[in-house]
Design a protein around this nucleic acid. Structure first.
Lengths: 193, 193
DNA sequence: AATATTATGGACTAACTGGTCCAAAATGTT
DNA sequence: AACATTTTGGACCAGTTAGTCCATAATATT
């Protein structure tokens, strides 16, 4: 019963991430993880060390995932402002889809764990920085393109957009109403005028 | 060893709330609760029913608490816009104080639990509505006073401010930097112009 | 002081927690 | 086919989980 050679550490990490994402760190038990990752307890500890180690690894995993996704969006050949608007719209609609109400993983982890887990907090912070930096370059581009008020501080705006997007996803947790979330998004982006 | 007559159910609930607030629902054990509430296991189950019952009760408790606080602020004799600004500033500074990084209780509960606990989600939603309504009446007042753009939809703005404030408090979890949070707050309030 | 009420400590569940360990089994390599 | 490697199931651990129950003890009422 050796593990079939198609076993993929990255896939298993993704599965673990999904469980933590839906249930949170404490509410996720070892057996939750084992069934999601489809491996035995022995292999789990052999390969990943501990529950907490896996948890940290999933945050790293998430960072890689969104890095790819986000930079893909930012490089699209469209006005930067439109791309930003698209990101907010997408967040609003995803929060109202079947499995989408989980929101942002980093976001959840921040609330769930960051106070008691400084290691995780550090990873979360650097993960959010990816988002912030993407917004920053989009904003600078938008200012050159003339769609975003050139007089406003780009870094302030980037921080603001990141925070606003987080707010929308928290709101979606208890109020998964597409129109409401979309409206909040549109109001948020008025700042760019 | 009967419970001393000064025992106060409300105080005990407040203590329970503090524990849930700092640790989250799952991470809070029964013994955590018992020591915080200073009562015995038997009395706990006698008086409150179960861990989950207490949890729901703490959300109600929190709603009462902020209802009082918030309506106190909203009734102050100052321009509505100034009051709103004060609320954002206060949130930013509280997130950087010693025990303040816990953020907003409803906020935390929403992320922590609302997906798996519809009962709690309902209470959270109605709690947030208190905040939203407060913002709504402040905005309407501010529009009459001329400090807030009269052309903008007041309800949209109220939802937006509530969501933004949530975002700021999530941001504060992993980035408790007063200047950053305050700057995000100021940027958020540009929408009112 | 006797009685009725209330709260308590602590024994007791049964299930589960994260984690360790190892002999056995499946695989890859020669 | 023989060997080395990898992975496994499952036994085991000590501690904890939420929750029940009751005889005892402290109080309140009369």
């Amino acid at each position: 019963m050796a593990r079939p050679r198609e076993f993929d550490k990255t896939v298993a990490l993704g599965q673990a991430m999904n469980v933590f994402w839906s249930r949170g760190y404490e509410a996720t038990s070892l057996s939750d993880l084992l069934s999601a990752m489809e491996l035995s307890k022995s292999s789990f500890y052999d390969t990943f060390g501990s529950k907490h180690d896996v948890f940290l690894a999933t945050i790293e995993h998430y960072k890689k995932t969104i890095s790819a996704q986000i930079s893909g969006i930012a490089d699209l050949d469209a006005p930067a402002r439109k791309l930003i608007e698209g990101m907010f719209e997408k967040a609003a609609s995803r929060m109202t889809e079947k499995g989408g109400q989980r929101g942002c993983y980093l976001n959840n982890c921040a609330v769930d764990v960051s106070l008691r887990d400084p290691e995780a907090a550090k990873l979360i912070h650097s993960g959010i920085a990816i988002m912030e930096n993407t917004f920053l370059s989009l904003i600078e581009r938008g200012q050159q393109e003339g769609d975003i008020a050139a007089g406003k501080n780009a870094l302030s705006l980037a921080r603001y957009l990141t925070s606003s997007l987080n707010g929308i996803m928290v709101t979606g947790k208890f109020n998964p109403d597409r129109d409401v979330l979309s409206d909040i998004g549109k109001t948020s982006l008025m700042v760019l005028d």
